[in-house]
Design a protein around this nucleic acid. Structure first.
Lengths: 218, 218
DNA sequence: ACCTGAACACCGTTCAAGT
DNA sequence: ACCTGAACACCGTTCAAGT
C-alpha cells in the first residue's frame, strides 16, 4: 500500500501521466487497440487493459458504460481516421480523372484496414452491427462513405462511369475493397498460389484496376 | 438414475435419440449453429449448448478438444456445403458461357452466406484465421475455391475473360462476393439509400454484373 | 466409451465505500 | 469527480470419479 503511494509520487516526476487527471479513457482505448492488433481479434478484456493502464478494472466503468461502448468509441475513432484518409486521397488526386480518384480511394480503404487493423476490426465487429445506441458512431460511419459516393456520382454524371446506378456502383466498389481487406486481414490472401514477389499492395491495385474496367463506359 | 435408464429405453421407441449413442457431437453443432444465427455472432457458450442438448457441459469435451475445435468442425461442414452449392451451380450452367457460370458462382456464394449465416460466420471467424491445427478444415476451404478458380482459368484460356492473371481475377471475384456477403450479413446494406423495393438478391446480381464487365475482353 | 461433479482461474458488471 | 474492494453470476477447461 505504502509502496503504491510512493510509486504514485514518483510517477509525477517522470513522464508517466496520472490517470486521475482525465486521460484514462484515452489510455484504455490505446491498450485495447494494441491487444486487438496483437491478437488479430477483438479479444481483450476490460480487466487486462485496466491493469495495463495501472488502474482497477472497475475504474473503466467511469469512462465507458460497458465493453461494447469502449468498442464503439474505437470504431468511431476509426471511421474518422478513415474519412481523413479518404479526404487526403482526394486532395492528392484533385486534378486527375475520376478513375484515378476512385482507384486511390479504394487503395486508401485497403491500406487503412492493414495499417489500422485494430480500428478496422472494431469498426466491423459483429457486436456493433446494430449502431442504434451509438448515434455518433452511426454518423461517423455514414460520413466516411460520402467521398466514395460523391466520386462515383460525379463520374456517372460526367459520363465517365457506367451505371446502372450510383447506389449499385458504390456498393460494388465498397464490397470489393471491403472483401479484399477482410481476406487480407484474416491472412487468406497469398495462400492461393500468388507469387511471393507480389505485395498485397500490388494485388490490391490490380484487383481495383480490374474492377474499374467494368465501371468505365468506353 | 433408474428414471434415466427408463428414459433411455423409451427414447429408442421415440424419434428422440439418446446422446449416449454417438450423436452428441452432431447435437452440439446444431445447437451452436442455431445460437450463432439467432445472435448474429459467434457468441454461444459450451455450457449453454451442452445444457440445450440435455447434457453436462463437461460432456462436450469428449467430442471436441475445446471451443475452437467445435467452431472448426462447423466451419469445415460449411466449406463442404459451399462446395456442393458451387458444384450445383456449375451443373445448372454447364451448357452456358463462362460469364453466366461465373455469375452464378458468385450468386451461390452470396446466397450461401445469407442462407447459412451460422456456417459462414464460423468459416471466417477470426479465431480460425490460422488453420494450422485443423488440416481437414484447411483442405475443405481450399477445395471450396477450386470451382471459382477453374471457371476463371477456363474463361481466360478461351479468350473470354481478360487477365492480368487467373490469380488476380479470382481474388477480385472472391473479394467482391465476400465483401458483399459480409456487408449484407452485418446489415450494412440497404441502409445507404437503396430503394426498398430492390432485394438483396437483385443488388447482388447487379453488383456481380458490373464486376463482370471489367472481366470481359470485348 | 461416455458422462457427471467438483474445482480452478478466469470473465463483465454492479454498488457501496473511500479520497 | 474519480477510483477501490467486495460481491454476483457467469465463463472455458481439467480431472477424478461414476456407469
Amino acid at each position: 500500500m505504502q509502496e503504491r503511494l510512493f510509486m504514485a509520487s514518483r510517477e509525477k516526476k517522470k513522464k508517466k501521466v496520472s490517470y486521475h487527471h482525465g486521460d484514462l479513457r484515452h489510455a484504455l482505448i490505446g491498450k485495447a487497440l494494441k491487444l486487438i492488433e496483437q491478437r488479430k481479434d477483438v479479444a481483450f478484456t476490460i480487466r487486462e487493459i485496466a491493469s495495463q493502464a495501472g488502474v482497477t478494472h472497475t475504474a473503466a466503468y467511469r469512462h465507458f458504460a460497458d465493453k461494447r461502448a469502449l468498442l464503439a468509441a474505437i470504431a468511431e475513432e476509426g471511421f474518422r481516421l478513415l474519412t481523413e484518409e479518404f479526404n487526403a486521397a482526394l486532395r492528392e488526386t484533385a486534378h486527375q480523372d475520376r478513375t484515378i480518384q476512385l482507384h486511390d480511394l479504394g487503395m486508401a480503404y485497403i491500406r487503412f484496414a492493414l495499417e489500422h487493423p485494430g480500428h478496422f476490426r472494431a469498426m466491423f465487429h459483429a457486436d456493433l452491427a446494430k449502431r442504434d445506441s451509438f448515434p455518433d458512431l452511426e454518423q461517423a460511419a455514414k460520413d466516411a462513405f460520402t467521398p466514395l459516393r460523391l466520386t462515383i456520382e460525379n463520374g456517372i454524371k460526367e459520363g465517365v462511369f457506367r451505371g446502372p446506378s450510383v447506389d449499385v456502383s458504390a456498393l460494388a466498389a465498397w464490397s470489393l475493397v471491403h472483401g479484399f481487406a477482410m481476406l487480407a486481414l484474416e491472412q487468406h490472401i497469398a495462400e492461393h498460389g500468388e507469387a511471393p514477389a507480389v505485395t498485397v499492395d500490388q494485388l490490391a491495385s490490380s484487383v481495383i484496376g480490374l474492377f474499374e474496367k467494368g465501371l468505365l463506359k468506353t
